[in-house]
Write a protein that binds this DNA or RNA. Structure first.
Length: 484
RNA sequence: GGCGAGGUAGCCAAGUGGUAAGGCCGGGCUCUGCAAAAGCUCUAUCGCGGGUUCGAUUCCCGCCCUCGCCUCCA
């Protein structure tokens, strides 16, 4: 099987993925700050990281996946206080919500999910090390800062040397808040302030709390060692977060932090950034209320290259809410599901335990070989999807013998496993759930139809529709399902 | 201002130095009493202007436009 290739932000080239130890691919993904529901943009990142992990495993490597939870920062403290909850209760609530959403999206759980609060001693130890090595300094207010000028290669990941930072461009520069030597020095430890309330920890520099960048460095080192295979996150983390992580970790260990940097480009909504003020901020729950499943969202999120910003249309030209991508995803998913069922039945898999078994072993992907190859080629998920449909056109399940059908079925399941796509299951005749009166009307219509009394048949079908049920004729009789 | 990404059919979105995957929508056909569903099928010359080349959407130059980042951010 050919190898998995992926673009690396540091070297700016597509490189082959391989574990340093030759066996287990060890990687770290920056996880969510748990202070509210994650939105679909956050999930684009997590879903594609999940696809990446699946392809690593399907390519014959073992994976060791670490994804952190940021459970202490300005926002978590502020909002927990606002709700009158302890920081722990507050972040646990949102952590659980996050896990629920991940489950709905069919995301594989990371092997380790460390949280910042649980690793304060590790962070303090790292700061002490940095201070002793001259890479960090304590200020009078009890904070500790990283001295950027002490780390010569600072800025390599984001090409800092090739650009100039515009002071205050983000509008949140607040140098006066803390006492640091240089505006670009970043905080490792924040001295306790009144607004932190009871959220502080003891340290050699007094009471306070850890800075955001540090937690990842400390947890990476704890679970993955000085050097690991890959580090990942959204593009917005390239600078300063990942740049700062590199400075912290490499100054401490003296070794390259990660061999490969994997960054995911943002999801845009109606051509712009998602924000609450623009009213284009969507969560899984919001989409569920509008009738869209997590699987449909997952399909949409993988339908564009992770290296390209993706445009999620939520408004039409008149400003009315509309979700063409999700609607399209539903159709596409059903199309694949029908094909999969036809193949399974032909292969004799429908009645076997095989039915819902995932196929994780590469044997012979047959017509779907190109689809999997697309995934291995810099995680080209849209190409993969295209290849799936192309392959479907070349295969006529009815014309295959059992062996060939089984082979193609396994190939399809293998690729779907890589994408993490769960197919919609066809409702088994809603028989029991249909109310008596609806059932009676349907029977009456069937009789009218058989008597070729079309007028009566159509009238009854309309009445059934008015009652909220959709009736479709089939070979045997009819199907009833609730109107969507 | 600096850095980066991008402009491919109504929408979304791959890809390639030799006249462009796929999905949705729309049209047509088949099936059907009708409808729906399903199956089949049709629909682009790749922002604009130059250049290189036998040949460019794909390489180079210029221009126009869009978006993201610039120490909260997936």
């Amino acid at each position: 099987m050919s190898a998995l290739k992926l673009f690396d932000t540091m070297s700016r080239e597509i490189r082959e993925i391989s574990p340093r130890d030759g066996k287990t691919f060890r990687f770290y993904c920056c996880g969510p700050t748990v202070y509210g529901p994650a939105h679909i943009g956050n999930f684009r990142t997590f879903v594609l990281q999940d696809v990446f992990r699946r392809v690593v495993e399907l390519s014959g490597m073992e994976a060791f996946h670490v994804r952190n939870l940021t459970d202490v920062d300005d926002k978590t403290i502020r909002d927990s206080q606002g709700e009158g909850k302890t920081l722990t209760d507050f972040t646990n609530f949102w952590r659980d919500r996050f896990h629920e959403d991940c489950g709905r999206l069919n995301l594989l759980s990371p092997h380790v999910e460390p949280s910042a609060v649980e690793h304060i001693p590790h962070q303090i130890a790292m700061i002490e090390d940095l201070v002793s090595k001259g890479n960090a300094y304590a200020s009078e207010d009890g904070s500790v800062y990283y001295k950027i000028s002490s780390f010569e290669s600072y800025g390599r990941l984001s090409r800092l040397d090739q650009r100039e930072l515009k002071e205050g461009a983000s509008g949140v520069m607040s140098d006066d808040e803390y006492d640091k030597d240089s505006a670009s020095d970043f905080v490792l430890w924040k001295g306790r302030r009144d607004e932190d309330g009871e959220n502080f920890w003891e340290s050699p520099w007094g009471q306070g709390r850890p800075g955001w960048h540090l937690e990842c460095s400390a947890m990476c080192r704890e679970y993955l060692g000085d050097t690991f295979d890959l580090h990942s996150g959204g593009v917005d983390l390239v600078f300063p977060h990942h740049e700062n992580e590199i400075a912290q970790s490499e100054a401490c260990t003296g070794h390259t932090m990660a061999d490969h940097w994997f960054h995911l480009t943002h999801l845009l909504v109606d051509g712009g950034k998602m924000s609450k003020s623009a009213n284009n901020f969507y969560t899984l729950d919001q989409l569920a209320e509008k009738g869209f499943s997590a699987a449909e969202l997952r399909y949409v999120l993988i339908s564009a290259s992770y290296r390209q910003s993706m445009n999620f249309v939520a408004r039409d030209a008149d400003g009315a809410e509309t979700f063409p991508a999700l609607l399209g995803a539903r159709q596409a998913l059903q199309k694949i599901a029908r094909f999969e069922r036809a193949l399974a039945e032909k292969a004799g898999a429908a009645d076997e335990d095989l039915e819902f078994e995932t196929v994780k072993t590469f044997e012979d992907t047959g017509a779907f070989a190109d689809a999997f190859a697309a995934l291995q080629n810099d995680l080209n998920t849209p190409d993969c999807l295209g290849q799936i449909f192309s392959a479907m056109k070349t295969i006529k399940p009815a014309e295959l013998d059992e062996g060939a059908a089984l082979r193609e079925w396994k190939g399809l399941r293998f690729v779907l496993e890589g994408l993490g796509l769960e197919l919609p299951v066809e409702e088994e005749g809603a028989g029991g759930d249909v109310p008596e009166n609806i059932r009676a009307m349907a029977e009456e219509r069937l009789a009218a139809k058989q008597a070729k009394d079309w007028a009566a048949a159509d009238r009854l079908r309309d009445e059934i529709a008015e009652a909220g049920w959709e009736l479709k004729d089939t070979k045997e009789g009819y199907d009833l399902c609730p109107k969507s």
